[in-house]
Deep mutational scan, measured.
Amino acid sequence: KRYRAVYDYSAADEDEVSFQDGDTIVNVQQIDDGWMYGTVERTGDTGMLPANYVEAI
């Protein structure tokens, strides 16, 4: 699945990823209600991200 960031996010922990509004997130997997795991296409960084900061595309 592919998602697009709708807000900027700065990683708060080493297992999270930072991204900017408009970034595409690929290979996304749902972890639980609030978190997903995926790769930021622009940077190649992979990690956890907050589900409410992205939307499906």
Rank of each mutant, 00 (worst) to 15 (best):
K1L: 13
K1I: 14
K1E: 12
R2I: 13
R2K: 13
R2Q: 11
R2D: 10
R2F: 08
Y3S: 00
A5D: 03
V6C: 13
V6I: 15
Y7Q: 15
D8Y: 07
Y9F: 06
S10E: 13
S10R: 11
A11M: 04
A11T: 05
A12I: 12
A12C: 12
D13K: 15
D15I: 10
S18G: 06
S18F: 04
F19I: 05
Q20M: 13
Q20H: 11
Q20K: 14
D21T: 15
G22P: 02
G22L: 03
D23I: 02
T24F: 14
T24E: 10
I25S: 05
I25F: 11
I25E: 01
I25V: 07
V26M: 09
V26W: 07
N27Y: 08
V28H: 04
V28Q: 02
V28W: 05
V28S: 05
Q29Y: 14
Q29F: 14
Q29K: 14
Q29I: 15
Q29S: 13
I31Y: 10
I31K: 08
I31V: 10
I31N: 06
I31Q: 07
I31E: 05
D32Q: 10
D32M: 13
D32F: 13
D33R: 10
D33Y: 09
G34R: 14
G34E: 15
W35A: 03
W35V: 06
W35N: 04
W35L: 05
Y37R: 11
Y37M: 10
Y37W: 13
Y37H: 10
V40W: 02
V40E: 01
V40F: 00
V40N: 08
E41D: 06
R42D: 03
T43R: 00
G44C: 07
D45S: 10
D45Q: 14
D45H: 12
D45E: 14
T46I: 07
T46V: 10
G47M: 02
G47D: 00
M48H: 07
M48A: 06
M48D: 02
L49D: 00
L49N: 00
P50V: 04
P50L: 06
A51K: 09
N52W: 10
N52F: 11
N52T: 11
N52G: 12
N52S: 13
Y53G: 08
Y53L: 12
Y53A: 14
V54N: 01
V54I: 11
E55W: 07
E55Y: 09
